[in-house]
């Protein structure tokens, strides 16, 4: 039995519907991929703050390469890892715009590590949504800088090994040491309570940019059922059991003025 919107009793009110900032197209993400949740949270935050008309989204290279198709905001596509550099230029030329980069871990921590570090160190007034799923998704599940020790990927079939691959990088902790940053937090998308907290963090990060406080980033622990090789529901449990101990959620840098927003 399908409930059509026309069949809903007339006395009922809509309590949740698709945010306006999200396009009506279907995404190309795999079933159960939490990229969709991250997209929705960002769109809801833009709607809540009324920023849809003046936001520029810088899309990365990776699974979210088509992110500009999924939001009803202006967008552009950066070279691999260079979204913070492009965002820097956009924000400096048009300081009244809200500039958001949406990047994955392969894009931000690996090839784009220099760009994100220096954008944060310069205190560029941009917001970064960092989706960390501990694997390269689009290219076929290779090891990323954020891949956990012992985690099997297509390029580390026996598990990530410290002697050959070193240690996973905790990007939020790293960036929080830079003075130019205003708001650096890590949240998770593995259950509803954490999703609610992630939404609040994205709203705060955008507010920090609106008030010109400097660089803000929200890291979102995300799932990749396809490349982890497990069903979507187990992938959420995998985040809780394996990623949270190494990547604890929390506020790593909160500028004193951010707390007053």
């Amino acid at each position: 039995m399908v409930t059509l919107i026309e069949d809903v009793p007339a006395t009922m009110q809509v309590v949740y519907q698709r945010p306006e900032s999200l396009s009506c197209v279907s995404t190309h993400y795999c079933p159960g991929c939490t990229h969709g949740i991250a997209h929705r949270l960002l769109a809801e935050a833009l709607d809540e703050l009324g920023l849809r008309d003046r936001t520029i989204l810088v899309a990365p290279v990776g699974c979210s390469v088509f992110a500009y198709n999924y939001f009803e905001v202006d967008g552009c596509e950066a070279a691999h890892g260079r979204a913070p550099a492009m965002a820097t230029g956009l924000k400096r030329v048009q300081p009244d715009r809200i500039v958001v980069t949406y990047q994955g871990d392969g894009d931000l921590v690996s090839i784009g590590a220099a760009e994100i570090l220096h954008a944060a160190a310069r205190g560029e007034n941009i917001t970064t949504i960092f989706v960390n799923n501990a694997v390269y998704g689009m290219t076929g599940g290779q090891m990323a800088p954020t891949t956990l020790l012992g985690q099997k990927t297509t390029s580390s079939p026996f598990g990530r090994n410290v002697s050959s691959s070193g240690y996973p990088i905790r990007m939020s902790e790293l960036l929080s040491q830079l003075d130019g940053t205003a708001y650096i937090v890590r949240r998770s998308l593995h259950d509803v309570a954490h999703i609610r907290k992630a939404k609040k963090a994205i709203v705060t990060a955008l507010k920090a940019q609106m008030h010109g406080l400097g660089f803000s980033m929200v890291e979102l622990l995300s799932s990749c059922p396809t490349n982890w090789g497990i069903p979507a529901d187990q992938a959420l449990n995998w985040i809780a059991e394996n990623m949270l101990p190494y990547y604890p959620v929390g506020d790593y840098k909160v500028h004193p003025e951010v707390t007053t927003l």
Binding site: V15, V192, R196
Partner: peptide, 21 residues
């Protein structure tokens, strides 16, 4: 009950939730 928890977890944002006021 129209609690909207399903719409929070849905990655494809395909759930619209209605509730009796």
């Amino acid at each position: 009950t129209g609690c909207a928890i399903c719409s929070l977890i849905c990655p494809d944002v395909c759930i619209t939730v209605f509730r009796e006021p």
